[in-house]
Design a binder for these strands. Structure first.
Length: 818
DNA sequence: GGCTCCCGGGG
DNA sequence: GTGTACGGGAGCC
């Protein structure tokens, strides 16, 4: 008699056992125990769409391909009525024995001239399983079968039937956060192959631990001493095995902690078999590095923050410190990490504070995970992919995964991913973007900002913008033409009789979100606001997706139509604002900035209300806020317009800075300092004279060599061996000289240099800081190439000349504003 | 004006 | 592995 169990799937994979693909679903039962449910009843397949009147089926069934002594063959085929971009097609569902046969078979038929296309041959087998079985990870699922005996860290249940049971979801997955500290002398680059891990910390529910392999006196109960790095790595495994987390969370752990741990374990030939099936921690080096443990979801919170949440907050860098302060209001512990290695070598009695620092980072990762998990979980529930995947996906992938999940409900076959040629073609195509009302560069006071809520999604829905609805023969001459202004482009339309696949889906997302917002007005719920946010995120990503060259449902006509209608609607607000007597100073895509001047905040709010009364159902203009001070600058020196480059001071006193590209580490500290200081003086103190004098002072100090050397040191890392460079930049020139001196200089080394005076190329004037005596730097270089570019756009709008800055005649030309 | 190289995060 | 996913700025060539 088969047994029934219920569980929350967390992660899944597949293995080949006895020549069959077996899905392994890892999860937690209702009784809160970890489990692995296996299912060998799912066949790999893909679709073939034959050309009209061609008999393809028989030929398909005869395929046999030999690769590396393995035979790939089609096991059976089915003819099936499907839709492709809204059109009815007769497709063949082609089954194979193993998942890996799918791409092989597709490869052998791709040149056949009797087929229209092959489709859905590149959907991962585990994802195909979730889609076809309609199983959503983290959501209560029922399996029918029996427990079997199999080598595994958790009980294994062999299922004959697996199906979604209810909408209940795993409330509290078990989370363990971790972080490592490594031996890393000051100024030296991080080198996993050379330098050991010296500390490792974990933070979980009622659990904190720091493991280190140098002993010192401490009363901290969570510190555990071991005798070597190899023992520390063993402890890493043991802690995970005993804690039994569903989720192992880190910050930048995909690309730092995990690869580091992997490299160190390999050095000692330690098996990192922490997978629930005893498989090893896998670090995969692709374009981005990802680290994967079978059965345990490894989350890299950095990736989620950067890829998905990024746009929502206003920070200059995605460091753990910034993100933690922004999201959970906590900072990292202040510690000078340059001291860690010397202390480790010479003063181990001082290691305790580094242990606390190490634990605190894990604690931050843990709380960040708690904070972000509702957002990720909601995306899991909406899109239907495991957490692991959601964590690492960008917007386009989220949209595409959602469409792939929805396609069967509409009986749609997914289009192929574009291949090389198509991508090249698509990349060359351009279209007109959003409308930008170019501001007159300058300083403004009392700026009221409005924006359309979900402008593009509501356009896609209300204008039925969909690749399959384009230029239908049924509505020719009847449907409204897309309002593209470009005369050379042919006008086109979208069907008004049928609703497209994408508009249907997006409308569903918008209305679901609206319902949630209604509930949220009544009472707060973190869960619902996470869902609301996820729905918004997803809906907002469709437009970009339609114009993304690598998208399956790519359609430049659709993308072009969205921006065309967008321009139409924003221009409408602008003209109405002007008619109402407002001074429109700036507008971009879906937002309008008004300088209030003689009008009041109340006038602005009333204006928005009035606009909203006239807007069709889904569309809404929002009052974003009032900014007492703002500066709008031109994009490049001398250029008139200024797209997306402004800084404003909010009523709450925070600076909102847009478009001033981050001055990064390969800039000198003096350039960073000056940019930040100038914006602050102008917006907070409202004193351009003071800002001017400040820069003038800095320029003077540079010329008089009063700015200390450490403010002009530029850091650049060598990315490859010195001999491998085609172009010799300043840092490469330095590296070559160092090498000639017999120093060990290779890829990864951090080069610090100072540019000195001379007429040669910059690379010939770049010197090591220690080879330049105090004041030996080239003041002109730092003024012209560092300080001035950092503030040029700002002073641009203030209209000062170079004489005003004390950088007068007879000097090298600096651009007309100085 | 193209092409090449670097940055991010982490210690 | 039912494969190939950044995007923008500076300096050399």
């Amino acid at each position: 008699m088969p047994e029934k169990i219920r569980f929350f799937p967390v992660e899944l994979t597949y293995r080949i056992e006895n020549d069959r693909a077996v899905i392994h679903i890892f999860g937690r039962t209702e009784k809160n125990e970890q489990i692995c449910v296996i299912d060998d009843n799912f066949e790999p397949y893909f679709y073939v769409v034959p050309k009209k009147g061609k008999d393809v089926q028989e030929k398909l069934e005869k395929i046999r391909v030999e690769r590396e002594k393995e035979i790939s063959a089609v096991t059976r085929t089915e003819t099936i009525q499907k839709k492709f971009l809204g059109r009815d097609v007769e497709a063949i569902k082609v089954y194979t024995r193993l998942p890996r046969d799918v791409p092989i078979i597709r490869e052998t038929i791709k040149e056949w001239d009797i087929i229209e296309s092959a489709n859905e041959y590149d959907i991962q087998f585990r994802i195909r399983y979730l889609i076809d079985k309609n199983i959503t990870p983290l959501t209560l699922t029922e399996a029918e079968g029996d427990f079997v005996s199999q080598r595994s860290r958790v009980p294994v249940f062999k299922a004959v039937n697996v199906k979604q049971y209810s909408d209940d979801s795993l409330e509290k997955p078990r989370v363990l956060a971790f972080d490592i500290e490594t031996y890393s002398p000051a100024g030296k680059v991080i080198a996993p192959d050379k330098n050991p891990i010296i500390m490792l910390s974990f933070y979980g529910e009622n659990f904190e631990k720091v493991i280190t392999w140098k002993r010192f006196k401490t009363s901290l109960p969570y510190i555990e001493f071991v005798d070597s790095e190899a023992e520390l790595l063993d402890a890493f495994k043991n802690v995970i095995n005993h804690y039994k987390p569903d989720i192992l969370a880190g910050y930048f752990s995909d690309e730092f902690d995990m690869p580091y741990i992997r490299t160190r374990a390999d050095k000692y030939k330690i098996k990192l078999d922490i997978g629930l099936d005893y498989s090893e921690l896998k670090v995969k080096h692709g374009k981005a590095v990802v680290s994967d443990i079978t059965g345990i979801t490894h989350l890299d919170l950095f990736k989620f923050v950067v890829k998905t949440m990024g746009g929502t907050f206003d920070i200059e860098a995605y460091s753990l410190n910034n993100i933690a302060s922004e999201l959970i209001g906590e900072k990292k512990m202040e510690v000078n990490l340059d001291e860690l290695s010397p202390v480790w070598d010479k003063n181990p009695e001082q290691l305790e504070k580094f242990c606390r620092y190490n634990l605190h980072d894990s604690a931050l990762a843990f709380r960040l995970c708690e904070k972000l998990l509702p957002n990720m979980t909601e995306l899991v529930k909406i899109i239907g992919l495991p957490l692991y995947d959601i964590n690492r996906m960008g917007f386009s992938q989220l949209v595409e995964s959602y469409l792939l999940k929805q396609a069967p409900n509409f009986n749609e076959i997914a289009p192929e991913k574009p291949h090389n040629e198509a991508i090249k073609q698509r990349r060359m195509q351009t279209y007109k973007g959003a409308f930008v009302f170019e501001p007159k560069p300058g300083l403004y006071r009392d700026i009221a900002v409005f924006d359309y809520r979900s402008l593009y999604p509501s356009i896609i829905s209300s204008h039925n913008i969909d690749p399959g609805m384009l230029n239908c023969s049924c509505c020719k001459g009847e449907a409204k033409l897309t309002p593209i202004e470009d005369e050379e482009k042919e006008k086109y339309w979208f069907c008004i009789k049928r609703k497209g696949f994408i508009p249907t889906i997006i409308e569903d997302l918008i209305t679901r979100r609206m319902r949630i917002k209604e509930i949220l007005k009544e009472k707060k719920s973190p869960l619902l606001s996470a869902r609301e946010y996820s729905l918004k995120l997803l809906a907002n990503s469709f437009y970009g997706y339609l114009g993304f060259f690598a998208a399956r449902w790519y359609s430049i006509e659709c993308a072009r139509a969205v921006t065309a209608w967008g321009r139409h609607y924003i221009q409408d607000v602008i003209s109405k604002a002007q008619k109402a007597g407002f001074n429109v100073i700036y507008s971009d895509t879906d937002s309008v900035f008004l300088a209030l001047e003689k009008k009041t905040k109340k006038d602005a709010e009333q204006f928005v209300e009035k606009i909203n009364l006239e807007l069709p159902g889904l569309m809404e203009l929002e009052y974003e806020g009032l900014y007492p001070n703002g500066i709008f600058v031109s994009a490049k020196a001398g250029e008139a317009g200024a797209k997306k480059k402004y800084a404003m001071l909010s009523e709450e006193g925070t600076l909102k800075i847009r478009g001033f590209e981050m001055v990064r580490r390969n800039w000198s500290p003096i350039a960073k300092d000056v940019q930040e200081k100038v914006l602050n003086i102008i917006l907070r103190e409202n004193n351009k004279e003071k800002a001017l004098n400040y820069v003038r002072e800095v320029i003077k100090d540079l010329k008089e060599k009063k700015i200390p050397m450490d403010k002009v040191v530029i850091h650049t890392q060598l990315q490859k061996e010195t001999g491998d460079y085609a172009a010799i930049g300043p840092h490469v020139a330095i590296a070559k000289k160092l090498k000639e001196k017999g120093l060990e200089i290779g890829a990864g080394f951090m080069i610090k240099y100072v540019v000195t005076k001379g007429k040669e190329k910059i690379r010939d004037r770049a010197k090591l800081p220690e080879d330049v005596k105090e004041g030996g730097y080239d003041a002109d270089y730092y003024i012209e190439n560092q300080v001035i570019p950092a503030v040029e756009r700002i002073f641009n709008v203030l209209g000062y000349t170079k004489e005003d800055l004390g950088w007068g005649e007879g000097q090298k030309k600096l651009g007309k504003f100085f």
